[in-house]
């Protein structure tokens, strides 16, 4: 469903993605690991349509069609979702207004009726229950003053509301305590089906005990240098990245 073909991208003339190839089918979970600065967030941003990067060559296909020319909102309308590594704080917009606006914009783009206030609230309550979130969050300013863990939980809450086809979770586990990690992972697992797919970016194999991946990829210097099954993550946890870096030389 999502296919990344020989993707090269740069920012300020600095090449960051160096020929990425990745194919993701419905029903699959792909984990991407890799050292700091290897380009994981850059890849996520480029897929989501951030216009701060120059695409030097390659392509991103969604259901077979190139989305390179699509603005971020259009990609979201197609079912793409990015859970940000660092969600932005936006004072003055409440969580509920934000999600309501987003969901209705997506419904509108799909030609569906917008959801009224009370079914919307009901849906929000249901999803928040799964994620064990206090409903007080709804009236708070978006991410403002949220703890690191609360921000991540809020990202997953948005994902649960928007029900994307292709979700990228960029280090959703960092900042979560052990209980929160379980809750968030359960939230993700509850959404898993053969009608969607996930990219899970993480530094820790622990998350992958909860969200069990079909594939694990290692990103290094803007390239996927190794792919394997979930046992690769266990090996990385034990051995670190040095041996992979050496293999590269």
């Amino acid at each position: 469903m999502l296919e990344i073909v020989n993707l090269h991208a740069s920012i300020d003339n600095k090449v960051i993605l160096n020929g990425i190839n990745l194919k993701i089918n419905l029903g699959e979970v792909h984990a991407i690991m890799g050292p700091n600065g290897s380009g994981k967030s850059t890849l996520s941003n480029v897929i989501a349509g951030h216009d701060g990067y120059d695409i030097i060559s390659g392509d991103i296909l969604f259901d077979g069609d190139s989305v390179l020319d699509f603005p971020p909102e259009k990609r979201a309308h197609l079912g793409l979702f990015l859970s940000f590594q660092y969600p932005v704080e936006i004072p003055g917009i409440t969580v509920s207004n934000f999600i309501r606006t987003a969901l209705n914009e997506i419904r509108k783009a799909k030609g569906e009726e917008s959801l009224g206030a009370s079914p919307m609230l009901k849906l929000m309550r249901e999803k928040m229950k799964v994620l064990e979130m206090d409903k007080g969050f709804l009236s708070r300013s978006l991410n403002e003053g949220f703890s690191g863990g609360e921000k991540k939980r809020n990202e997953i809450f948005q994902m649960a509301m928007l029900e994307p086809k292709m979700a990228i979770l960029d280090e959703t586990d960092s900042g979560l305590d052990i209980d929160a990690l379980r809750v968030v992972a359960n939230g993700v697992n509850a959404l898993r089906s053969d009608r969607n797919a996930f990219i899970v970016i993480t530094h820790y194999q622990r998350l992958l005990d909860y969200i069990i991946p079909d594939f694990v990829h290692v990103l290094f210097n803007g390239k996927i240098v190794k792919s394997g099954g979930k046992e690769l993550a266990i090996e990385l946890e034990k051995r670190g990245y040095d041996w992979i870096k050496k293999e590269q030389k």
């Binding site: 701060g52 603005p71 971020p72 909102e73 990609r75 936006i90 934000f98 914009e105």
Partner: peptide
């Protein structure tokens, strides 16, 4: 710009 991208990435038009 980051806030704008955040909103657009959620499907809210520019």
């Amino acid at each position: 710009e980051d806030a704008l991208f955040y909103l657009r990435a959620r499907g809210i038009r520019n």
